[in-house]
C-alpha cells in the first residue's frame, strides 16, 4: 500500500514538473527573445566598435569602450545628472507624496477622493504628452510661466527656462514631480491606511498627536513602504528618457544629458553603437544593483 502511494506521489510529482515546465516555456521564450538575447548582444557589442549603418563591420576593441567612458566628459555629466534627478525625485516625489498622503489620510475630513483623483490624474497621461504641454508652459515667448512671473514683477531667465544650462534640469524635474508625485502619494497612502488606529489611540494617551504622532508613529510604521517608494523612484530616475528627450534632447550644451539620452545620441546620431552598448552595460549594472537593493528591502518589508 505504501509502495503504491509512493509510486502515485512520484508520478504526480513528475506530472506537476512537466506541467510547470510547459507553463513556464512561453514566458522563458519571450524573456529569452526580448531580454536575455538583447542583453547578451549588448554585452558582446560593448567590446566592439561598429555603427548602425555598418552592422557587418565589427572591430574588436576589448575594454576600449569602457576606458573611453571614463575619459568622456559628457558621460560624467550624464551620470551626475542622473544622480541629481535621483536626489530631486526623492525629495519632490517621495517627500511631497508622503506629506500629501498624510494630509489625505488624517488631515482632511471631506473631499479625499476628489483630491486624490486630481493629484493622481497626471500619472495616467503619457510622459510625452505631459512634456509637450509643459514645453508650451515654459516657452519664453508665449508660455504662461513667463507671463505669471512678469505679471508679479519678477524677472525671467533671459536664456529661457529650458535654454539656460544652469536651470533647465530643475525645470524638467518639476514636471516629472508634477506627473509622478500622485503615484507616490497613492502608494504611501496605502501604507498609511495599513497602520492600525489603535496605535494612534495608544500614542494619543501618551501625548503624541499631530506632527509628533506623524514623526514617531507614522513614519516608522511605513518605513518599508517608503523604502520601496524611494527605490522605485531611484530606478525610474536612472531610466529617465522621455522627459529629457522631448524637452531638450540633452541640451542646451549637454547640460541636461542623462545616460538614457546620451546612449541614444551615441547610438543613433553619432553612430557609435559599440560605445553606446558599453554605456548601456554600465546603466544595466547600476539598475541591477538598485534592483537587488529593492528586492532585498521588499523581502524585509
Amino acid at each position: 500500500m505504501n509502495k503504491n502511494n509512493t509510486q502515485t506521489n512520484i508520478f504526480s510529482l513528475s506530472n506537476d514538473k512537466v506541467s510547470a515546465t510547459i507553463l513556464l516555456v512561453p514566458a522563458l521564450i519571450f524573456c529569452t527573445i526580448f531580454i536575455f538575447i538583447p542583453a547578451i548582444g549588448t554585452i558582446v557589442g560593448s567590446f566592439y566598435s561598429y555603427s548602425l549603418t555598418s552592422m557587418n563591420n565589427w572591430k574588436w576593441v576589448g575594454f576600449g569602450n569602457y576606458v573611453q567612458a571614463t575619459q568622456d566628459e559628457y558621460f560624467w555629466v550624464a551620470l551626475k545628472n542622473n544622480f541629481i534627478i535621483v536626489f530631486a525625485s526623492i525629495v519632490l516625489q517621495v517627500g511631497v507624496g508622503t506629506i500629501l498622503a498624510a494630509i489625505l489620510d488624517r488631515g482632511i475630513k471631506y473631499g479625499r477622493v476628489i483630491f486624490r483623483t486630481i493629484i493622481f490624474t497626471p500619472m495616467v497621461i503619457s510622459s510625452v504628452a505631459v512634456s509637450l504641454i509643459w514645453l508650451i508652459i515654459y516657452d519664453p515667448n508665449v508660455g504662461i510661466l513667463n507671463a505669471i512671473f512678469k505679471s508679479i514683477g519678477l524677472s525671467t531667465p533671459s536664456k529661457g527656462w529650458l535654454g539656460d544650462p544652469n536651470i533647465s534640469i530643475w525645470m524638467i524635474m518639476i514636471t516629472a514631480a508634477w506627473q509622478n508625485t500622485g503615484f507616490m502619494m497613492v502608494l504611501i497612502l496605502a501604507g498609511l491606511q495599513g497602520v492600525s488606529k489603535e496605535v494612534y489611540d495608544a500614542a494619543e494617551i501618551d501625548g503624541a498627536t499631530g506632527v509628533k504622532a506623524f514623526w514617531y508613529i507614522t513614519l516608522p510604521m511605513i518605513r518599508n513602504v517608503l523604502i520601496v517608494a524611494i527605490l522605485i523612484t531611484t530606478i525610474g530616475a536612472f531610466k529617465v528618457f522621455e522627459f529629457i528627450f522631448v524637452f531638450t534632447q540633452g541640451g542646451p550644451s549637454n547640460a541636461t544629458q542623462v545616460l538614457g539620452t546620451y546612449i541614444y545620441l551615441q547610438a543613433f546620431n553619432l553612430l557609435h553603437m559599440g560605445y553606446a552598448n558599453a554605456l548601456s552595460v554600465i546603466l544595466l549594472l547600476i539598475a541591477l544593483f538598485l534592483g537587488w537593493l529593492q528586492l532585498k528591502s521588499s523581502r524585509k518589508a
Binding site: L135, D139, P140, N141, S158, K159, G160, D164, G251, P252
Partner: peptide
Amino acid sequence: FQDAPNATHPDL
C-alpha cells in the same frame, strides 16, 4: 534675435 533662441521652437 529674441532673448532665448535656444529655448524657442522653430514652429513658433
